[in-house]
């Protein structure tokens, strides 16, 4: 069973504190709502006892994508937030190690899962700086 709950982005840490004892973080799903100028963030939590899911849904502005990190409450959020930063460029304030996780460390072309990201030949032929035997 999934319970949906829409919250404001400022309330996320407070809600997460309440879920801390009985739930664990399942996943963070980001959706690019480009027409509304927003990012939709879905924090999925699963109950440790009966496997019920809770979906905390929140929206943040697309031109100022900032939200509080919950990686100190749920350590599993560490990599999830890094991936969201890597693919969508969302800044999680309070995260201790917010850097690229799946793409190369010196990747210069922005955030590939945003809807306005265009794959061109320059990106496809890029191999990294001085990467030659």
């Amino acid at each position: 069973m999934i319970n949906y709950k829409e919250i404001k982005s400022e309330e996320l840490r407070k809600e997460a504190e309440e879920l801390k004892d009985k739930y664990f973080l399942f996943s963070i799903i980001v959706v690019d709502r480009i027409n509304e100028g927003k990012f939709e963030l879905n924090y999925l939590f699963e109950n440790k006892e009966n496997a019920d899911l809770i979906n905390l849904k929140t929206f943040i502005l697309r031109n100022d994508p900032k939200i509080d990190s919950i990686s100190d409450i749920f350590p599993a959020a560490d990599y999830e937030e890094r991936e969201a930063y890597d693919m969508f460029g969302i800044i999680f304030t309070g995260h201790k190690n917010l850097k690229r996780i799946l793409l190369p460390e010196d990747w210069p072309f922005g955030y590939p899962l945003r809807k306005d990201f265009v794959i061109n030949d320059e990106i496809r032929n890029w191999t990294g700086t001085d990467l030659r035997w």
């Binding site: 590939p112 496809r124 032929n125 191999t127 990467l131 030659r132 035997w133």
Partner: peptide
């Protein structure tokens, strides 16, 4: 994955 952003277009770009 030739049209992907993340895959190397042949390892002969970096290795002999």
């Amino acid at each position: 994955y030739h049209h992907s952003y993340s895959v190397l277009l042949g390892i002969d770009k970096i290795l002999p």
